[in-house]
Simulated scan of single mutants.
Amino acid sequence: MPLEVTGLKEWASKIKEIEKVFKSVKISDIALQAGAEILRDEVKRRAPRSKFGGKHAADHVIISAVVEGKIAIGFIPDHWYMKYHEWGTSKMKAQPFFEPAFNAKRKEIQQAMYNVYVRELAKI
């Protein structure tokens, strides 16, 4: 008695749709943006603030556009000196805030990016 298999064409079609989701530049850009927003918010929270009431670098954390699958998070050019707070100098002890922010939110960032793909896959 021969074995009859049905539904393979539909299954292959679904797999191609899933592949499109994972290869989509638009969806990966959305996922990067979702993760970047979480990191930006945590960097803002942890960044040092001026004791003299001036501009606070924490209020000027920006997210770049996604370029070739990469996104940058940092400060506006007026706050170029924040790298010295992060890494220190020969005369100033490092007061890291950026790397600890990333380490604290790593799982949440990954989850947010994962959720974007889950949401897109649910549409199939």
Rank of each mutant, 00 (worst) to 15 (best):
R49V: 04
L39P: 02
K26R: 14
K107P: 00
A58D: 07
A101S: 08
F102T: 03
G88A: 02
Y81K: 07
K107E: 14
F22S: 05
G7R: 06
H56R: 14
H60L: 03
W87Y: 15
V5D: 02
G88S: 01
G35N: 02
P48T: 07
Y114L: 12
V116M: 04
L39H: 01
F22D: 06
A104V: 10
S90P: 00
L121P: 05
F98S: 11
Y117Q: 03
E120V: 06
Y81C: 08
E86M: 05
A72I: 08
I71Y: 00
K105G: 03
E37W: 08
E120G: 02
K93S: 12
K20A: 15
A12Y: 12
A122L: 13
E108T: 08
K44H: 10
M82D: 01
P48L: 06
A47R: 03
I71P: 00
I30H: 07
K70Q: 11
P100L: 11
S50D: 09
E86D: 01
M1V: 05
T6S: 14
G35I: 04
G35D: 01
N115T: 06
A12M: 14
K9G: 14
V61C: 10
I18Y: 06
D29A: 09
K20H: 13
T6L: 13
I38D: 06
Q33H: 10
T89Y: 10
Q95G: 12
V43H: 07
S90L: 06
F97W: 06
R46C: 09
F98D: 08
P77E: 06
R45I: 03
A112D: 04
I63F: 03
Q111M: 12
I71L: 15
E108W: 11
T6W: 12
V118I: 13
S28E: 15
I38R: 03
M92T: 07
D59Y: 06
I124D: 04
A12H: 12
W11Y: 15
P48N: 11
I109K: 11
W80C: 05
M92P: 01
A47Y: 04
F98N: 09
L3P: 00
H56P: 00
P48H: 09
V25D: 14
V66R: 02
A101E: 02
H60R: 09
L32F: 02
K16I: 02
I73E: 04
K20M: 13
E37H: 12
F75E: 09
R106W: 10
K107R: 14
A36K: 05
A72K: 15
A94N: 05
S24W: 07
P96N: 03
H79K: 12
P96D: 03
T89A: 03
W80P: 00
A12E: 14
F98Y: 13
S13A: 15
A104L: 15
A72W: 10
Q95M: 11
N103F: 11
E37R: 15
T89E: 02
S13Y: 15
A112R: 05
Y81M: 08
A112G: 04
